[in-house]
Simulated scan of single mutants.
Amino acid sequence: MLKILIVVLLFAIIISLFSGLVFLVKDDGKSTRTVNALTVRVTLSVLLLALLVYAVLSGQLPINPSPIR
């Protein structure tokens, strides 16, 4: 469940990135939709980072400290 939420947040960040690009190209600086898309993207990124930290600290997302040689 946690990994699915991580993937959903990643896709939401990508969608927000491209919507911001579309707003930047089409609006010609006449609206705040680009700023709103940036705000959404930053908020989603902070949520993703917090979720990753929680997943690692709770042991639900294992890390590999030393690769097998």
Rank of each mutant, 00 (worst) to 15 (best):
residue 68 I to L: 09
residue 10 L to Y: 04
residue 30 K to V: 12
residue 33 R to S: 14
residue 42 V to E: 01
residue 64 N to Q: 11
residue 66 S to L: 13
residue 8 V to R: 11
residue 40 V to F: 05
residue 43 T to G: 15
residue 55 A to S: 14
residue 59 G to M: 04
residue 21 L to V: 14
residue 59 G to F: 05
residue 54 Y to E: 02
residue 64 N to L: 07
residue 40 V to H: 11
residue 35 V to C: 00
residue 13 I to C: 12
residue 53 V to W: 10
residue 34 T to W: 06
residue 67 P to A: 15
residue 62 P to G: 11
residue 40 V to L: 09
residue 51 L to C: 11
residue 5 L to Y: 04
residue 1 M to C: 05
residue 55 A to E: 04
residue 68 I to C: 03
residue 58 S to G: 04
residue 58 S to D: 12
residue 4 I to R: 12
residue 34 T to N: 00
residue 3 K to G: 03
residue 38 L to A: 10
residue 45 S to M: 08
residue 53 V to F: 11
residue 56 V to M: 13
residue 44 L to F: 13
residue 23 F to A: 14
residue 20 G to K: 01
residue 56 V to R: 12
residue 36 N to Q: 08
residue 11 F to W: 06
residue 66 S to P: 00
residue 50 A to L: 15
residue 26 K to R: 14
residue 44 L to Y: 08
residue 12 A to L: 15
residue 41 R to W: 01
residue 64 N to H: 03
residue 45 S to F: 03
residue 54 Y to H: 08
residue 7 V to W: 00
residue 26 K to L: 08
residue 38 L to Q: 07
residue 34 T to K: 01
residue 19 S to N: 08
residue 10 L to M: 10
residue 35 V to G: 02
residue 40 V to P: 00
residue 12 A to I: 00
residue 34 T to M: 11
residue 15 I to L: 15
residue 26 K to H: 06
residue 9 L to A: 10
residue 5 L to K: 11
residue 17 L to V: 06
residue 31 S to Q: 10
residue 24 L to M: 09
residue 35 V to E: 12
residue 13 I to N: 06
residue 10 L to R: 10
residue 54 Y to D: 04
residue 30 K to Y: 01
residue 33 R to E: 08
residue 4 I to C: 05
residue 49 L to K: 01
residue 3 K to V: 04
residue 60 Q to L: 09
residue 43 T to Q: 03
residue 11 F to D: 05
residue 45 S to L: 08
residue 3 K to W: 01
residue 61 L to K: 06
residue 36 N to C: 06
residue 32 T to R: 09
residue 10 L to H: 07
residue 13 I to W: 01
residue 25 V to M: 05
residue 39 T to N: 10
residue 32 T to H: 04
residue 11 F to A: 15
residue 35 V to K: 03
residue 33 R to I: 01
residue 69 R to C: 05
residue 1 M to K: 10
residue 48 L to I: 11
residue 53 V to S: 12
residue 62 P to W: 02
residue 1 M to L: 10
residue 6 I to L: 15
residue 28 D to P: 00
residue 4 I to K: 12
residue 55 A to M: 03
residue 34 T to I: 01
residue 64 N to I: 12
residue 19 S to K: 01
residue 63 I to A: 11
residue 25 V to R: 09
residue 19 S to W: 04
residue 28 D to E: 07
residue 32 T to E: 09
residue 2 L to G: 10
residue 37 A to K: 05
residue 5 L to E: 14
